[in-house]
Amino acid sequence: MINTKIKPFSATAYKNGEFVEVTEKSVEGKWAVFFFYPADFTFVCPTELGDLADHYAELQERGVEVFSVSTDTHFTHKAWHDSSDTIGKIQYYMLGDQTGNITNNFGVMREGQGLADRATFLIDPEGVIQAMEITAEGIGRDAEDLLRKVKAAQYVAAHPGEVCPAKWKEGEETLAPSLDLVGKI
Rank of each mutant, 00 (worst) to 15 (best):
D97Y: 01
L95W: 03
S84N: 04
E111Q: 14
A131M: 11
D85P: 10
L115R: 05
H81L: 06
D51I: 04
L52R: 01
V108Q: 00
L95Y: 02
H77Q: 05
H77A: 09
Q98S: 15
E58Q: 06
T47L: 13
D117M: 13
G127K: 12
K89H: 09
D142V: 15
T76Q: 13
G50K: 13
E126M: 15
G127Q: 10
A116I: 02
T86P: 02
Y56R: 04
I139V: 15
V108M: 10
D54S: 11
N105T: 02
E137I: 07
Q60C: 02
R141W: 01
G88V: 00
N104I: 09
Q98K: 14
Q60G: 00
G138M: 15
K89P: 08
V69A: 09
I139F: 07
G140I: 04
M94P: 00
T71K: 03
G63K: 12
E65M: 06
T120D: 08
Y93M: 11
P125H: 13
L115W: 13
S68H: 01
P125M: 08
G88F: 13
I139W: 05
R141M: 07
A136N: 14
M109G: 05
G88K: 08
H77W: 03
T103S: 07
A53I: 08
V108A: 06
M94T: 06
V69I: 14
E126Q: 14
I129V: 15
T99K: 11
T99H: 05
I134L: 13
A116Q: 07
Q91K: 15
D54I: 04
Q60R: 10
G140S: 12
N105M: 00
M109Q: 08
T135Q: 11
Y56T: 04
E58W: 00
V69T: 05
H81K: 13
M94L: 11
D85G: 10
S84C: 07
E61Q: 08
G107S: 03
L115T: 09
G114P: 09
T103K: 02
E126R: 09
G127D: 09
D72M: 03
